[in-house]
């Protein structure tokens, strides 16, 4: 492990220009990421997904991404054009989306979709890509890779679909994985299974992981460090184990509004929001 961080962000901003003033989706977000597991939590619209997409160069027009510094494994991302980003995507940084039902191409077999990533980055032959895809399916604990390879997305369950997604995104060996709500669309029973498989691969390959979620429990139990975002800004950073000691009123509010087993409360407290947090 080298000393230079895997990912460095300094004052990342994402702005959507509009007729009635600009919409700032991400305001001056800065953090360093080593080969660790970083969780980003926040409510809808807090800019957590947009941050992930900005790192991949996938912020759709008319969004404008600017940063004082944005480096991935030493490579400067701010000066990168679309072609340059394309070489990084899949190979250096990959992304897992929320719902495999919508994030896999419905008319291509799942095996081919995994092999496609391999062919794209290694210019490999059909057979080599197929063999790599079968290995990858086995690596995400799919028992009968040969059979699953030929299945289409509508024929696999949510949990299996998300494992296929992981295989598809990790086959080219990226250094950083951005998982955007990877388990929100899954049954509770398979959520942990999928996370465990992802976690296992991320650790054994020495990758960095950014886990984007609105689920505080999930993030605090799976990550080393947690960023709390509000209104496009990072309002608090703390070690996952110390989330209960968080000081920012927004984080405290989030924590307070979690229901707890065995503790009856007539009403959960409502989350108070202060516009000043986004400005501050």
């Amino acid at each position: 492990m080298s000393d230079t961080p895997l990912l460095t962000l300094r004052n990342l901003r994402v702005v959507y220009p509009g007729d009635e003033g600009d919409l700032v989706a991400v305001r001056n977000v800065s953090f360093d990421l080593g080969r660790e597991r970083l969780g980003i939590v926040g409510e809808s619209g807090s800019g957590k997904s947009t941050t992930g997409r900005a790192i991949m160069g996938l912020v759709a027009a008319p969004g404008i991404v600017t940063a004082d510094e944005m480096r991935l494994a030493g490579k400067d991302l701010t000066s990168l054009d679309e072609r340059g980003f394309r070489r990084l995507r899949g190979k250096k940084v990959a992304m897992i989306l929320q719902d495999p039902k919508y994030s896999l191409d419905p008319v291509m077999s799942v095996g081919q979709q995994i092999a496609e990533t391999h062919r794209c980055h290694f210019r490999s032959s059909m057979n080599a890509a197929r063999a790599a895809a079968l290995d990858m399916l086995a690596a995400v604990h799919i028992r009968d890779p040969e059979r699953v390879y030929a299945l289409y997305p509508h024929q696999v369950s949510g949990g299996m679909g998300q494992r296929v997604m992981i295989a598809m995104m990790l086959i080219a060996g990226p250094d950083l994985l951005i998982a955007d709500e990877p388990t929100s669309a899954l049954d509770v029973t398979v959520q942990h299974q999928v996370l465990a498989i992802m976690d296992d691969l991320v650790r054994s390959r020495g990758m960095g992981l950014i886990l984007i979620s609105h689920n505080l429990h999930l993030v605090s139990s799976f990550c080393d460090r947690v960023l709390v975002m509000y209104g496009g800004r990072v309002v608090e950073t703390c070690a996952a184990g110390e989330l209960s000691k968080a000081r920012h009123p927004y984080t405290r509010g989030l924590l307070a509004s979690l229901p707890e087993l065995g503790r009856r409360r007539a009403e959960l407290p409502q989350l108070r929001r202060d516009p000043a947090w986004a400005e501050g």
Binding site: R86, R89, G90, L97, Y102, S103, D105, E116, M168
Partner: peptide, 14 residues
Amino acid sequence: KQEYILATLAKGLS
């Protein structure tokens, strides 16, 4: 507009 388009872009396809 579909999600899978974003996924194919994230894979690094042209």
